[in-house]
């Protein structure tokens, strides 16, 4: 089998009884890069969090499957071991746990007992990925995300992506708060992952990330739904013209929504 398939069908998600997603359909296959764009507060991050299993989000309707397996029946860690990965917008700080100890535990969590990654192999790959992402070697011995700058946290998320090699990755606003050099480095890391065995869902507010990572599909989310899908040219048009034309075309009227970030 080459590549996994993540299927989201008619997904409805609430947070504290407020419905944020109102029926999202999306299919991501190995080898494909999808971008989800849209104005603030339309549920993009909610979609990412719901797929990974964030404790605050409640799925009220619909389904998520990975290679036919029911993702919603899985615990968060089972989803990860099944091949899902979420680069988070606000990664937690874990005091007292070094980045490298954590990474090794995470890599070994996916492997059978007795088949742990050999230490030298782990160190070699870690050094290589740190170099590739222009990250100071000392990050490996710093406590995970503790005292990291915004840019360091994002790079660390991509480092984890490269180390854990998931089948399907979701990147939640990985570009926010990055300067142009950091954006290039992060994009380089993501592009390096491209293969038939790797599918990616890129959630972004800005088109500029897509100058460095070319998506195969672009989806526009508004008011908790995917309202329009297309190819890379759709992103370009959004960059040039904004979202108003889509609203007009589809007859969508503004309403108050709040993006729930967690």
């Amino acid at each position: 089998m080459s590549g996994s398939v993540l299927e989201v069908k008619n997904l409805h998600v609430s947070i504290e009884d407020k419905e944020i997603l109102k029926g999202v359909d999306l299919t991501i296959k190995g080898g494909e890069f999808h971008a989800v764009m849209g104005p603030n507060g339309t549920g993009k991050s909610t979609l990412a969090s719901a797929i990974m299993g964030h404790p605050k989000y409640e799925i009220t309707e619909g389904s998520i499957t990975l290679d036919g397996e029911d993702v919603l029946e899985m615990e968060v860690d089972e989803r990860a071991r099944a091949g899902l990965f979420l680069a988070m917008q606000y990664p937690s700080e874990i005091s007292g746990v070094t980045t490298s100890d954590f990474l090794r535990s995470a890599i070994n969590a996916k492997r059978e007992e007795g088949d742990e990654i050999p230490l030298m192999k782990f160190i070699k790959k870690l050094d290589k990925d740190l170099d590739y992402l222009d990250i100071d070697q000392n990050m490996a011995t710093r406590y995970l995300n503790e005292g990291f700058s915004g840019g360091e946290k994002k790079r660390n998320e991509i480092l984890q992506l490269m180390q854990l090699e998931p089948n399907i990755a979701i990147l939640d606003e990985i570009d926010s708060g990055l300067d142009i050099d950091a954006l290039k480095v992060v994009s380089k890391g993501i592009n390096q992952m491209r293969s038939d065995n790797f599918g990616c869902l890129i959630i972004t507010h800005y088109q500029r990330l897509l100058n460095y990572i070319t998506p195969d599909f672009v989806h526009v989310m508004m008011q908790g739904r995917v309202v329009k899908s297309g190819g890379p040219e759709l992103a370009k048009r959004l960059e040039a013209e904004g979202y108003e034309w889509i609203k007009e075309e589809l007859g969508i009227e503004d309403e108050e929504t709040a993006e729930q970030n967690a």
Binding site: E75, D77, R79, A80, F102, A109
Partner: peptide, 16 residues
Amino acid sequence: PLQMYYLMSRGLEREE
């Protein structure tokens, strides 16, 4: 719980 979510999202079992 958010620390737990973060660590588990990398494949670590709850206990670990």
